[in-house]
Simulated assay, not measured.
Amino acid sequence: MVRVATKDDVKRMVAVHQESFPGFFLSALGAPFLSQYYRGILAAPEGIAYVYLNQAGEPAGFVAGTANPRGFYRRLLRRSWHKFALAALVPVLKRPRIAGRVARALVHPSGNPVGDHVAGLYSIGVLPELQGTGAGKKLVGAFLDEAARRGCRRVFLTTDRDGNDPVNAFYAGLGFQVERHFETPEGRRMNEYWITLGGET
């Protein structure tokens, strides 16, 4: 039910993202921007991405991130800055105030932990009808296994601290632990979770 994501899955990954995160900033940037984002992860040597297939064999969930996350977005922009600029143009023209936030979204992970021993899980989404079925757990498990195979010893992710109890409980149930709280420039209070691979402390 879980397999490595390919470029042919990007359209479905974007659709699942938008349905899983309605009203969120990246969803509001639209399908062209998200398509470039996920294509960038899939094309990167450090990229890690899987899809969960429903009974019809169609991607109905996904997980995406990278090994060695420090500077990944900078490297991504260096390769495809013109494509991201074009994809962001319409949303920014419609809402000029978001221009600064778009820029921050692209360079934010420059402060991520550095090193081949670390992986960052950036995004996971599952269609509503599959939530509670174990699909998300299988996706995270596949991501962690691949990160470990690549020599990573720890994996981190961030998620909203407030109004997000089911998601926080999901990560805690998988063994992730909150190691840092922080607040975004927009005022979102966030949890930074970490897990050590191989059961080490």
Rank of each mutant, 00 (worst) to 15 (best):
W194V: 07
I195W: 01
G187T: 04
R95K: 13
V14A: 03
N164R: 03
V102F: 14
H181E: 05
F170P: 00
G173P: 02
V140S: 00
M190G: 00
M190T: 01
R75I: 12
G71M: 03
D145G: 10
A103E: 14
V167R: 02
A88T: 06
R70S: 14
L121E: 00
S20Q: 00
K7S: 15
R39Y: 12
D116L: 15
L76S: 07
R153T: 13
V63A: 06
W81G: 10
A49D: 00
A147E: 00
V4W: 07
K7E: 12
A142S: 04
A99Q: 08
H17G: 02
A15I: 10
P113N: 11
L86D: 11
E129R: 13
T6I: 07
E200T: 15
S27K: 05
G111N: 06
R161T: 09
P96V: 09
P91K: 10
L29C: 05
Y171I: 02
D165F: 09
A105K: 09
A60C: 02
V102L: 11
R154K: 10
A172L: 07
T159E: 09
R154M: 06
F33I: 08
R150T: 05
F24P: 09
Q177H: 12
H181F: 05
G115Y: 03
F156S: 10
A99M: 14
P109F: 13
F176A: 02
P45F: 07
T184A: 03
R153Y: 12
Y38R: 09
V102R: 11
V51T: 01
A56M: 13
E179D: 09
P166V: 07
G134K: 01
V107T: 13
T133M: 06
R95E: 14
V155W: 00
R161D: 10
S110I: 11
F72Q: 08
G187A: 08
S110R: 15
G115R: 04
R189C: 08
P91R: 11
E183L: 13
R95V: 15
V126F: 03
G30S: 09
Y193C: 02
I124P: 05
K7T: 14
G115V: 04
R180P: 02
H117S: 14
A31K: 11
R150V: 10
V10W: 08
Y193W: 03
L157M: 09
R12E: 11
